[in-house]
């Protein structure tokens, strides 16, 4: 056997770079894990379902602006975006923590905040790619971007993607049941409570995103319970807060359990 290791000791290696927010290797590992076979299938399934639904609506009935609004809000923004966010956000870190592979990231001279921020960027990118782009396509299929509805919901979906990615990434760090908790949150809070209970609407990512969409859509077909300023501020606060807390928790993450 040939051993080619250099003599041990400090100073044999020079660190290449100082602290940074984004690490390309962390990003590469994250998106390759995220876009693995089963997860990629799930990610493709929801946008595909949206496109099948809007094609059917368009084919079977006359799709007016109101129908476009109903489908984009009722399915795209309130179901598809949070569900894609669950898959991408929790998937960006949860499985690595569960199976222990995260040890290969944590046992490196990299700030935990860098790992979280990089994973967040990947999760946002994937959520946007699999929710905002299909939303745009669906909007064009439904009413050809009449009243700017397709663009408005696309930007709304993109804004929601950022917040959902951060929330579900945090869940991935906090709990081993992140997918279940995320699904309950996405379907119960965002899907039901956020649509039905008036007070809860203010605390719904969907409503914040709707505020953005409302601003961009012409006419009054899109409406939100919160103002644009409130929506943007809450989106920013939740995203920043969840990211900060995820970094903090990752720093204290105890990998080892009992023997």
């Amino acid at each position: 056997m040939s051993v080619t290791t250099a003599p041990a000791g400090r100073g044999a290696l020079q660190p290449a770079a100082g602290p940074r927010l984004y690490h390309p290797t962390v990003a590469r590992l994250t998106y390759r894990a995220l876009l693995g076979r089963r997860r990629a299938l799930l990610l493709f399934l929801l946008p595909l379902l949206l496109l099948i639904i809007v094609s059917a609506v368009r084919g079977l009935a006359h799709a007016d602006d109101s129908t476009a609004n109903d489908v984009l809000q009722g399915f795209a923004l309130s179901a598809m975006v949070p569900l894609v966010g669950v898959i991408a956000g929790t998937g960006a870190i949860g499985p690595e923590i569960d199976d222990g592979a995260i040890v290969y990231l944590l046992a490196k001279p990299i700030r935990r905040g860098t790992i979280i921020f990089t994973k967040l960027l990947v999760a946002i990118g994937v959520t946007m790619a699999f929710s905002a782009i299909p939303t745009l396509l669906a909007g064009y299929i439904l009413n050809g971007n009449g009243l700017n509805i397709a663009v408005a919901y696309t930007v709304g979906a993109a804004a929601a993607s950022v917040a959902y990615a951060a929330i579900f990434l945090l869940l991935g760090v906090l709990t081993r049941h992140a997918v279940v908790v995320g699904l309950v949150y996405a379907l119960v809070w965002e899907g039901v409570v956020g649509n039905v209970v008036p007070g809860a609407r203010t605390l719904s990512v969907q409503q914040w995103a709707l505020a953005v969409a409302q601003k961009l859509a012409h006419g009054d077909v899109v409406s939100s319970d919160v103002s644009l300023a409130t929506g943007i501020v809450l989106l920013a606060v939740v995203t920043a807060g969840a990211t900060w807390f995820a970094g903090r928790r990752l720093r204290s993450l105890k990998l080892a359990g009992e023997e």
Partner: peptide
């Protein structure tokens, strides 16, 4: 290689 990159090796 990924581990080497994460260590910031030249």
């Amino acid at each position: 290689v990924a581990n080497a990159e994460l260590h910031g090796l030249p």
